Simulated scan of single mutants.
Amino acid sequence: MDLLVNIDVDDLEKAVHFYGNAFGLRVGRRFGDFGAEMLGSSAPIYLLVKNAGTPASDTMSQVRGYERHWTPTHLDFVVKEIEGAVQKAIQAGAQLEKPVATHKWGKLALMADPFGHGFCFIQFLGRGYDEIAD
């Protein structure tokens, strides 16, 4: 099974610029004004234009909004050096929501992209998650 990541955005060029500069991703393919495939991660990331205020689903009343929002699913980007990755993302337009925290398994930075989506940077230390696995 393959994994694809889809991220709704309201401004495709802004999103391509952010994800390119913040994470070093590159455009693989463009889908007109409706989307772009970003490559350079372990899974392709598709930026899909969805206007703010449009229904998120036919089965609910919630509409899309691009202010900071919470969702139980987010992206974790594993990096070799977290401080540099955080600064690069901030320069591209991300927000650092909590200072970098160090845990037994590694370092963690909680962040948000310019479209309100949360993401994290992780720098594994020692054996990574195996440091806390049973």
Rank of each mutant, 00 (worst) to 15 (best):
V16G: 00
D134K: 14
T73S: 10
L25E: 08
Y46K: 03
A109Y: 13
D76S: 03
G106M: 08
R127Q: 14
S57M: 06
K104G: 00
R68T: 14
N51Q: 14
A109L: 08
H17R: 11
V27W: 14
C120Q: 02
N6S: 10
H103E: 15
K50V: 10
I7A: 04
G35I: 01
V78C: 02
A112N: 07
D130R: 15
E131S: 14
V100Y: 14
D113M: 02
N21Q: 13
G118M: 09
D33I: 02
N51G: 10
A94G: 05
G40T: 07
L12F: 07
A85R: 00
T54H: 06
T71W: 09
A109P: 10
I122Y: 11
Y46I: 06
T59C: 09
E131D: 14
R68C: 05
Q62P: 00
V86Q: 05
R26I: 12
L108P: 00
D113C: 03
E13N: 10
G128W: 12
F124Q: 13
F18P: 00
T73W: 11
G116T: 12
L75I: 11
L3Y: 12
V63D: 06
F34G: 03
C120S: 03
V49A: 01
P55S: 08
Y19A: 01
G93D: 04
N51F: 07
L110Y: 13
K107A: 04
A85Y: 03
S41M: 10
G35W: 01
I82R: 05
L96R: 10
V78D: 04
H17A: 08
E81S: 11
V86R: 04
Q95L: 12
I7E: 02
K80C: 05
D113A: 01
V16P: 00
K98P: 07
E81G: 06
F18N: 00
G128N: 06
R127S: 14
E13L: 06
K98V: 13
A89G: 03
D10G: 07
K104W: 03
F124R: 12
L4H: 14
A94K: 05
P44C: 11
D8C: 06
A94R: 02
H117V: 06
A36M: 07
S57N: 11
I122S: 02
L3W: 11
P114K: 10
I90E: 07
K80E: 15
A56F: 09
F121W: 07
C120I: 04
V5C: 07
L110T: 07
